[in-house]
Design a protein around this nucleic acid. Structure first.
Lengths: 66, 66
DNA sequence: TCTATATGTAAAGTTTGTTTTACTTTTGAA
DNA sequence: TTCAAAAGTAAAACAAACTTTACATATAGA
């Protein structure tokens, strides 16, 4: 799975720490997500999609090996 | 978080085991998701939404305590 | 009623998400 | 060039997802 959280942050001019605060996780969690270190929970991705006012599928994308 | 996987299964006339096979998890994982025993990963929920041809937000819903 | 299929549940174990702390590197503005 | 903020990274610890095995219950059709 991939995501474009970094782009969404840029659009909304938010730092990793800003985003982490808004959705209630640590900054490292945001950083790791952006670096594709792991797959977030559905609650987390729903919160991020809601915050950025985008359908979840426009931020998170399945890949062939998923 | 809640979900309506059971309804989607009914629409598509699939058993928990059918769904589990299609998305590559155990039947108990599907059962536990339907019973809200835990929050699935975003890969799982994306696969389910894709299978049922619905936007993820029409199958999985944030709740106030999320 | 008997049987097969579907669902619910539980415990133990493995894997993976997430936090915390802490340090390094990058970037940009003064 | 210097300083502060932002981003990258890593290790240890903990929490939660997910699997496997196994058994119980429900349901519907023969």
């Amino acid at each position: 799975m991939k995501n474009n959280i970094k782009v969404q942050r840029a659009i909304h001019d938010m730092t990793q720490a800003d985003l982490a605060d808004k959705i209630g996780v640590s900054r490292q969690t945001i950083n790791a997500m952006e670096k594709n270190k792991y797959v977030p929970s559905t609650v987390l991705s729903l919160k991020i999609a809601k915050l950025f006012k985008k359908p979840l599928e426009e931020i998170f994308f399945l890949e062939d090996d998923d």
